[in-house]
Design a binder for these strands. Structure first.
Length: 348
RNA sequence: GCACAGGUGGGUGAGUGGUUAAAGCCGACAGACUGUAAAUCUGUUCCUCCUAGCGAGGUACGGAGGUUCGAAUCCUCCCCUGUGCA
């Protein structure tokens, strides 16, 4: 799932995202609440219509901002007070208000309001954070069940989601403690959601721990419901996690890295800003069928980057997303063939 | 020809007697980026040597000389650039 925090996947128009085969996008409640505002989006017919995106949307609850904006927030049992990173103004988020905002935005999948536990955190702190997330999960579900019919849905239904089909996913926390992960998973399942996310990872922990915790968490989640690993990963990692049983992932890495000149290819990472590509006539990735690789040279992409041209960001992002989406298509194909998740891709 | 202003490292531009191999910015080079406060951030950027260090030596602020314990900074002459006046 490409990340489109403020109702845009930075640098790439929606029609191209459709061409790339993107099925679902992420949006962020916190950012859209601040600007343009939930009411504005609601009045304009919801997020799908507002951003002209007919396919699925998942909105994150703002739970990650509890972590990433830690210097700008104050946390209590009731909720979190943020100081806006835009203008410093103060805003209160609770499970209830985060649900109200997400229902107002009108995404297809919305997320429970959680506390993304920081790394490192000791067991006591991790448990307290997990318990808070569990209480907030209960409150999120309660509010959602009572108010989901208020969805102001008048946007274009998608083939995958033909009717207003908002689903609230729970989020498992528990830091890097396997027993807490197990407990968090079981108690989140007890509350009951149509899908479950693994949160609190990719927050600075060593990557082998990420994998261990995913492994230790996934096994406690229902196999007949979506399992969503939040915030990962590299192309290699998403294959690994798919193999562990993860169904959905999102990550800013392909888009952010692209804007910073780091491109993922079948031959590994390419830092297109490097001088070695200045006269390189070849395609970025000779095995990639995307519109960037089939049209432009490495030398041109490097030139665009060095010249600080916006087209560099656009093309780089298109390629990285294309590479990620191809990777996941290959994984799905491989799974359908009964071979498990594989990184190998069909010949172009 | 005269009068002002000025010549600093790849560029621009601070610095006007001593922690100055010389700020900052740009450029160049390298690295980071994982539920987006990110078109961002970090490091390196005269040469040589080593025990690789807030190490040793060398060279450097248009040129040549001078003053001084010490000069990019002060003095003399010369060269060059810009502006104005002839």
């Amino acid at each position: 799932m490409p990340v489109g925090t403020v109702a845009t996947v930075k640098g790439v128009p929606q029609d191209i995202l459709e061409d790339l085969g993107v099925q679902i996008l992420l949006g962020n409640t916190y950012h859209l609440y601040l600007r343009p505002g939930v009411d504005t989006v609601r009045k304009l017919g919801g997020l799908h219509k507002f951003m002209a995106w007919p396919r699925a949307i998942l909105t994150d609850s703002g739970g990650f901002q509890v972590f990433s904006l830690s210097e700008l927030r104050r946390l209590t049992e009731e909720g979190v007070t943020f100081r806006s990173h835009l203008d410093g103004s103060s805003h209160f988020f609770s499970p209830e208000s985060a649900m109200a905002a997400q229902i107002g935005l009108g995404g297809d999948i919305i997320m429970a309001f959680d506390e993304c536990t920081e790394y490192p955190a000791d067991r006591e702190r991790t448990r307290a954070s997990m318990e808070l997330t569990l209480r907030w999960a209960g409150r999120s579900k309660k509010y959602f069940e009572e108010h989901k019919s208020e969805v102001p849905w008048n946007s274009v239904p998608s083939p995958q989601f033909p009717v207003p089909s908002q689903a609230l996913f729970g989020i498992v926390q528990g830091g890097t403690d396997q027993s807490l992960r197990k407990e968090s998973a079981e108690r989140t399942i007890e509350i009951g959601f149509p899908g479950y996310a693994i949160g609190g990872l990719s927050v600075g922990e060593p990557r082998h721990i990420t994998k261990e915790i995913v492994e230790a968490t996934v096994e406690h989640l229902p196999t007949d419901q979506p399992r969503y690993l939040m915030g990962v990963g590299t192309p290699e990692e998403i294959v690994t996690f798919a193999n562990l049983g993860v169904d959905m992932m999102d990550c800013v890495l392909p888009t952010r890295a692209a804007r910073h000149g780091l491109l993922f290819t079948s031959e590994g990472k390419v830092s297109i800003k490097q001088a070695r590509y200045a006269a390189d006539e070849g395609p970025l990735d000779p095995n990639c069928p995307c519109r960037v690789c089939s049209r432009y040279s490495r030398a041109y992409l490097r030139h665009l980057y060095a010249s600080n041209e916006v087209l560099a960001q656009v093309l780089n992002t298109i390629h990285n997303l294309s590479f990620y989406l191809d990777t996941m298509r290959a994984v799905r194909h491989s799974i359908l063939l009964g071979r498990g998740a594989r990184f190998s891709r069909p010949n172009p």
